[in-house]
Design a protein around this nucleic acid. Structure first.
Lengths: 222, 222
DNA sequence: TTGAAAACTACACATCTGTGTAGTGGTCGT
DNA sequence: ACGACCACTACACAGATGTGTAGTTTTCAA
C-alpha cells in the first residue's frame, strides 16, 4: 500500500477543525499533517519551512479572519504548485464559487458534506479528477447553459475575414490591417463589408459585439 | 416512504442495458420503467403515449445509432420539461460534454461509473443537485479557469460611460447615441475618449473587445 | 470661500470608415 | 470557350470618428 495522503487544513473554526481532525485520525489512508486557523499563518509556515513535507491536498476555508481563502489561493498555488486545493466552506455564493474555480481549485465542497463525501472527494482529486458539491455543480452547469452559441444559423467567416475581424478587435485600423496582411486597404474594406453582411451589422463595434455574442470570439484570448 | 424514482433508459448496447436493468431490479428506491435502444423510438413512445407515466430521470447515451443523444436532447427536454436528464456515456470528449451541458442536462456520468456511483448520481439529481463524473468536473473546471476576469485593477466605468459603450456595441453612431441620451455628439465623444483611456485602447472595436474580455460585458445579452 | 479636480458642453479638424462604382485575373462547372 | 463567381485592386467621397483646445458647471475637501 502507498503512503498516506497528506492533508493541510486551513480553517478558523476550531470546532469544525476538530471534527475534521478526528475524522482523519481514524483513517489509515489519509493524514492531517498540519492545520492552521488563518491563511497568513499557513502561508508563513510554508516560507519558513521549505523542507516541510509538501502536502498532497489543502482543504481551504473561504471565510477566514484576515486574508480570505480567495485571496490566499494564488499564494498557495504559487508556493505549492503540485498541491491540489479543495475549497471546504459554507459559502454557496455563486461569485465565490466562480472566483475560486477561476483561480484553479480542484474541488469545491460545502461543510454540509459528510465525512465520507469529503474523503471521497479527496480520493477523487488525488486520482486526477475534480470534486464538486452537487449544488455547486448544478450552479456551474446552469451558468454554462446559456453561454455557448445559441443560433442554428452558424455564422461562417472566411479564414481571411476571420483574421481581419480579429485584427479589428485588437484595435488596428484598416490601413494597418492591410499592411499586416499585405493587401491594400481597399481589399480590407471589401472583406469588412462582407463581414458586416454576414453578421448583419453596419459597423465595426457592432461586428465585434456580435462576434462575442455568437461565440465566434471567446472571451479567453488577449 | 415515497414512491420509487422512475427511470427511462436510452441505450443501444443491449449488454449494458441489461447491466443497468439488473442493477435497478434489485433496488427498492428506483425503478426502470422503460428502455429504448434508439432516441427515435424513445421519442415516438413519448408522443404516442401522452398518458404514460412521466419518468423522473432519463439516462441518455450519446452514441446512439441514428439520431445521437445530443440531437435528441432538446426534444426530450421539450416533451418532458420536468424530467431531468443524465448523460450516461463513454464519451469524455470535451465538445460532447460542453454541448450536452449547454443543452441543459443535470448530470454527466461515464459508463465506467459503478452502480453505486450511478445511483448516487440519480439521487443527487433528484435532490436538486447535479452529478458530474470527476473527470468531467475537472474538464469543466479547467475550462473555466481562464474565462472570468483576471486583473486586479478592475475597470470601473461611469454609469454614463457604460451605457455609451453598450450603445456603441449595438452599432449606434455617436450622433444617435447623443440623441438617445439627450446630449450632444461632442459630449458623447468626450465620454468615449475617457472610455478608451480607462480601457487602454484607441478605438471603438478594441474597446468592445476589451469590454468582453474583461468581463465588463458578458456574452449573454442581445 | 476658495481652489482643484471631475463631469460635462462646445467647436474645429485631420483622419478613418463605410460604401458605391468599376475593372482585373483566377477558378469552376458546363 | 463561355459565363458566373470570387478574391482582389483602384478611385472617390460623404459621413463618422478620434483628438486637441477651451469654456462651464458641479463636487468636494481644505
Amino acid at each position: 500500500m502507498q503512503n498516506k495522503i497528506t492533508i493541510m487544513l486551513v480553517e478558523d473554526n476550531e470546532a469544525y477543525r476538530n471534527v475534521i481532525k478526528r475524522s482523519f485520525s481514524r483513517d489509515a489512508n489519509m493524514e492531517l499533517v498540519s492545520q492552521f486557523s488563518t491563511a497568513e499563518i499557513a502561508l508563513r509556515s510554508l516560507q519558513e519551512l521549505s523542507t516541510r513535507t509538501v502536502p498532497d491536498i489543502i482543504l481551504l476555508d473561504l471565510n477566514l479572519p484576515g486574508m480570505s481563502g480567495l485571496e490566499a489561493l494564488p499564494y498557495f498555488r504559487q508556493a505549492l504548485p503540485d498541491t491540489r486545493i479543495i475549497i471546504l466552506t459554507q459559502s454557496d455564493k455563486e461569485s465565490d464559487i466562480l472566483e475560486a474555480i477561476s483561480k484553479g481549485t480542484s474541488g469545491y465542497l460545502l461543510k454540509s458534506a459528510t465525512n465520507r463525501q469529503l474523503k471521497d472527494g479527496i480520493r477523487t482529486v488525488m486520482d486526477g479528477g475534480a470534486s464538486l458539491d452537487p449544488d455547486v455543480a448544478r450552479l456551474i452547469l446552469e451558468g454554462m447553459e446559456q453561454t455557448p452559441k445559441q443560433k442554428k444559423p452558424e455564422i461562417s467567416l472566411t479564414e481571411k475575414e476571420h483574421s481581419i475581424l480579429v485584427l479589428i478587435g485588437q484595435g488596428l485600423e484598416q490601413k494597418d490591417i492591410a499592411k499586416t496582411l499585405c493587401i491594400t486597404r481597399n481589399t480590407v474594406a471589401y472583406h469588412i463589408k462582407h463581414i458586416y453582411e454576414k453578421l448583419e451589422v453596419q459597423n465595426a463595434p457592432a461586428a465585434i459585439s456580435k462576434a462575442y455574442q455568437t461565440g465566434l470570439f471567446s472571451p479567453g484570448k488577449m
